[in-house]
Amino acid sequence: MAKVPVQFTLNGSEKAEFIDSGTTLLNALRDKIGDTSPKGGCHQGTCGACSVIIDGELRLSCLTLAETCDGAAITTTLGLAEGGVMHPLQRAFLDTFATQCGFCTPGMIMAAKVLLDHTPNPSRDEVIEALSGNICRCTGYEPIIQAVLRAARANSQNAA
């Protein structure tokens, strides 16, 4: 099968790969590039575990063809910590005990990050809306909602 070249930045580093046409971004990231932080929970866009940020927007990498990401800037949960220091969202998820099995966590953090990037002080309803595309089977969601609200508070305190 003919390979297609694709180039994008992943968490700030340039990546160039030859992929099979039709490869999802999820499979390209996991199998070709080795970033396994996006998870494949359904491969059909219903669970949110594969969520990544493409050019500032939340996207389901299992429904995104890698070849459509040429020239894009992609962020995954693996790239959030800077210099070994966790992102405030990651810190908040830890502090509120918002992870159990952890499989949905990277997708949840991606969804939360896009929310806070656009809406630094979200209401509870806005947090719920932002997380509503992500399935968690362990936690009952409440600790995750609390984590996002906590990260937002931490951000606003830092800004003040």
Partner: peptide, 14 residues
């Protein structure tokens, strides 16, 4: 206690 809370909150939801 925090891990117990995780289980119990998630279980109650389930």
């Amino acid at each position: 206690p925090k891990m117990v809370e995780q289980q119990l909150v998630g279980g109650s939801w389930m």
